[in-house]
Write a protein that binds this DNA or RNA. Structure first.
Lengths: 252, 252
DNA sequence: GCTTTGTAGATTGTCAACAATCTGCAATAA
DNA sequence: TTATTGCAGATTGTTGACAATCTACAAAGC
């Protein structure tokens, strides 16, 4: 999925190239098909909210906009469908998937289990370097909480949990985790963090890192599980409020 | 994914049809595209071992064999790629994915976490009918263990765990779970159960049902987690043996 | 007025053809 | 002999065209 292996190819025989970016570009072109490019572009548009949930994805219009024909676009649709970002109906077309509150709650439940698994695994194998990175994240979030920087906290929060999963080295776990996070990103009905809850989360993050650092597999798993379920509860509460005609729009 | 909603459409206005299968077929044709059909056919072939891991999937040959053109076939390829059953290389083609032992171990680790989540959820909400079904499964596996019917036990085992996940009613959990099980099915290097271990597993299954029936969420989660990790350990042990030049082919 | 029917335009499903790339083998040269 | 080069066939990537289906609106019938 990631292309950080772009520089893996050593110059080998054809040592004529003093320009390093060449083979990087080459390696990219080599692996990347139009379908993949289109799929990534669409995913970005969807996750950025440019194509909001429920949107109809017109084939000819999108193909023209992206400068490709309908073939690669339709293949990309299949990829996005299987990854849960769009939904296709025969003879009706493709639509950006809409995640109901109950579905989001279900996904969050699974995510909690994955977080717990990641914590368990990482507590057993974390390196000092990895722990340093996590501590830096935790400190950054404490700082963001201190100055009430919601956006910074949110970004760090996402990255923190992603890195924990990534650091386990378990590709299957990372794959599933990211899939679910993307689907959850589709559900953003006031998904922003309540500012007053941020310091509490920052504390939990630090505690999580402590458990991992202590090699406490069960404790790390439990801490992450409770942390995720707390997030789920908050989402459910906000969701119920949001479905009522409550006029509280000034939060943004 | 499943089509058990085929009879959901009531006769409505056009009550001319005394033949019930008509609208069932109609509903199927309505929802099913060539791409979906091809995808299901390919998945079946792969999981049945008809297309073994590493196989090259030739587009024109497969298209001709299935009686479709390359377009729908290529779309189905994208679906299967995203579900982790095949791998595609640009300008080289599609291949049935090969799961290494280490990968299978990683997948099993995730599966253990999902099993635990399912057990936790089901223990909180299982109905008497569901518990009866699970008890029947457990009893059936005890019987199969008694007469050493490995095949029957294996089939029941798969169904048992699938049903537990399904019974939670969490669609996201079921989706992820089945995806991983399919990928694991790709890894069948003597993946058959050792006959002497079967009674032990049958006992564990009964214990799992007991925990669920007791509403012991933590206990059910822990039992299922340990159960899955036990399976993982056995697979690792067998895998290491299998990679050595041990001549023990008469087990089948 | 309301429902039904019919038609035109738009949209998706499928296909076949063309272009680009790869693979394997033979011919050539060191 | 061995390595390299250059083809020819096979295979995949992409495109545009045609067929099937759906949607929206208008006309006709009750």
């Amino acid at each position: 999925m990631t292309y950080n292996a772009a520089f893996d190819s050593r110059p080998t025989v054809m040592s004529e190239s003093a320009s390093t970016p060449v083979d990087s570009v080459l390696a990219l072109v080599q692996r990347t098909s139009l379908t993949r490019l289109v799929g990534e572009a669409l995913e970005k548009m969807i996750l950025a909210g440019e194509l909001p949930p429920g949107s109809k994805l017109n084939e000819v219009a999108l193909a023209e906009r992206l400068g490709v024909s309908r073939g690669p676009l339709r293949e990309a649709f299949r990829t996005l469908e299987e990854s849960g970002l769009i939904r296709q109906e025969k003879n009706r077309g493709a639509f950006v998937r809409e995640i109901e509150l109950s579905e989001a709650a279900d996904i969050y439940e699974v995510r909690a289990g994955l977080d717990a698994t990641a914590g368990r695994l990482l507590a057993e194998r974390a390196t000092p370097e990895q722990l340093a990175v996590l501590r830096e994240f935790a400190a950054g979030m404490q700082r963001a909480a201190g100055v009430n920087d919601v956006d910074a906290f949110h970004a760090l929060n996402l990255a923190f949990h992603d890195r924990i999963v990534e650091m386990t080295g378990n590709a299957a776990l990372l794959d599933v985790y990211r899939r679910l996070v993307k689907q959850l990103a589709l559900f953003r009905r006031r998904n922003l963090l309540a500012p007053q809850a941020i310091p509490h989360f920052a504390e939990e993050h630090s505690a999580i890192v402590d458990r991992i650092a202590a090699g406490d597999a069960a404790g790390a798993a439990e801490a992450l599980h409770a942390h995720a379920r707390g997030g789920r509860q908050r989402m459910l509460r906000d969701g119920e409020l949001g479905s009522l005609p409550v006029a509280d729009e000034k939060r943004a």
